[in-house]
């Protein structure tokens, strides 16, 4: 399944840094986001666009993650030659990320196995 099916997202910009939020529609899906939408996966998804490190911040009480991508905007919004100099469309690209659907629904066997 696609990230888009369980989360929404907005991109912001500061200089040459792009910030992207990933917010679960249903806060119960936060653990799935936290497990699969890692900084490394986001960095790999944007390989060729983001030249610096990707940092992830976790906001479990909002069911949200916040990604900070350095060197993402072609030298900065005010200098970039890109059609989308602000990188505002990057959120839509991230929502196309493939996720592995959980084998067991919440409260199913997976949880019982842990207890």
């Amino acid at each position: 399944m696609k990230l888009r099916q369980i989360a929404h997202s907005r991109t912001g910009d500061k200089g040459n840094v792009s910030t992207i939020s990933v917010i679960a529609f249903d806060e119960a899906d936060y653990s799935l986001l936290a497990e699969q939408v890692t900084a490394a996966r986001v960095a790999a998804h944007f390989a060729g666009i983001v030249t610096g490190p990707v940092i992830r911040y976790e906001l479990p009480q909002l069911g949200a993650l916040n990604f900070v991508m350095k060197g993402a905007l072609g030298g900065g919004v005010t200098r970039s030659l890109a059609l989308d100099a602000h990188g505002k469309s990057l959120s839509s690209a991230l929502l196309d990320l493939d996720l592995t659907a959980p084998e067991h629904p919440e409260g199913g066997q997976a949880r019982q196995g842990k207890s």
Binding site: H8, R10, D13, K14, I55, Y57, N66
Partner: peptide
Amino acid sequence: TATVKEQLLYEIEDPA
């Protein structure tokens, strides 16, 4: 809550 969460994190680096 969804519109507010999106704006809460808009252009934020370290939320803390």
